[in-house]
């Protein structure tokens, strides 16, 4: 059986839905970061698949930039999370609803 572009797109959509469920139900901010990583990775799969099936390298380029953005997001987000944890001793999302500083 031949694996076509639609197979990869359906897989990417399933992974994206899993990540979306994670974003919706997680309360711990670290777990929320995991869910965003899943979202970015599912998009990367569809970029690579489209790049392969249309014979165009642009998709792979975009996947590289997505990986770079994911890496810098982790660095800054984790730094902010450490600062918050030093100050308030928890990383629950519900305590961050106000910006009292």
């Amino acid at each position: 059986m031949e694996i076509g572009l639609n197979h990869y797109l359906v897989l990417s959509t399933i992974l994206f839905a899993i990540g979306l469920v994670g974003v919706m139900r997680r309360k711990n901010l670290l777990m929320l970061f995991f869910a965003t990583e899943i979202l970015l990775n599912s998009v990367n799969i569809s970029f690579a698949a489209i790049s392969h099936y249309y014979g165009d390298l642009t998709g792979q380029m975009f996947a590289f930039f997505v990986i770079a953005i994911a890496a810098s997001e982790v660095a800054v987000g984790l730094g902010l999370l450490i600062v918050w944890h030093k100050k308030h001793n928890n990383i629950d999302l519900d305590n961050m609803s106000t910006m009292r500083g």
Binding site: Y8, L30, F33, F34, E37, N41, N44, A48, A49, S51, H52, Q60, A63, F64, I67, A70, A71, V74, A75, L78
Partner: peptide
């Protein structure tokens, strides 16, 4: 999918850098 370089970058960046940061 034939994107060898992307696969290698994925392993290096995610399981190398990002996972180490998360573990830290």
């Amino acid at each position: 999918l034939g994107a060898d370089f992307l696969g290698a970058v994925q392993i290096v960046v995610y399981s190398g850098a990002v996972m180490a940061l998360y573990a830290f």
